[in-house]
Simulated assay, not measured.
Amino acid sequence: MPGPDLDEKIETYYVRVRGVVQGVGFRHYTVRRAHELGVRGWVANLDDGSVEVMVQGAANQVDRMLEWLRRGPPHARVTDFFSEERFLDKRFERFEQH
């Protein structure tokens, strides 16, 4: 009997990035990267100049998205990266920009 498919387990992470992350297309590129990887959730600017992201998907997808968020798009400069796993019952249907 085959073992469980690891991609069936859904992980959800909350991420906050600081640095030069607003006004450089960070949210736009985050949505594009999320769609490429197949993760769901959202990205939003905060009033303090940081960006927050909720990422949900299979472990390997989430890991790749978190790795990308540590760097951000070409014109961004991430100076602080925080992430923590969240345990949500909610399942996001797509990845959106707020």
Rank of each mutant, 00 (worst) to 15 (best):
R27T: 06
K90H: 15
T79N: 10
A44G: 08
M1F: 03
E52F: 04
G3W: 13
F87Y: 10
I10R: 10
E52K: 08
M65D: 00
I10Q: 11
K9H: 01
L88A: 01
A59S: 08
R64Y: 01
V43L: 02
E11Q: 14
E96N: 15
G41E: 03
G23S: 14
N60K: 15
E84F: 03
S50Q: 07
N60T: 15
R91Q: 04
G23Y: 09
P73A: 12
V17P: 07
T12F: 13
P4V: 10
R70A: 09
E36D: 15
A58E: 07
L66F: 01
L46F: 14
F82W: 08
W68P: 15
V24S: 14
K9M: 11
E36F: 08
E67L: 05
Y14K: 08
V53N: 11
H28L: 12
M65H: 05
A76T: 01
D89T: 00
R27I: 04
R86A: 11
L66A: 04
R64T: 01
V62N: 07
G23H: 07
M65T: 00
V78R: 02
H98L: 12
V20G: 02
G23F: 03
V51P: 06
G19D: 04
L66C: 13
G38E: 13
G19H: 11
G25T: 13
R33W: 01
P4T: 00
H75Y: 14
H28V: 05
F81W: 09
S83A: 09
L69R: 03
P74H: 09
F82M: 11
R18T: 02
W42F: 07
G23V: 06
R71W: 09
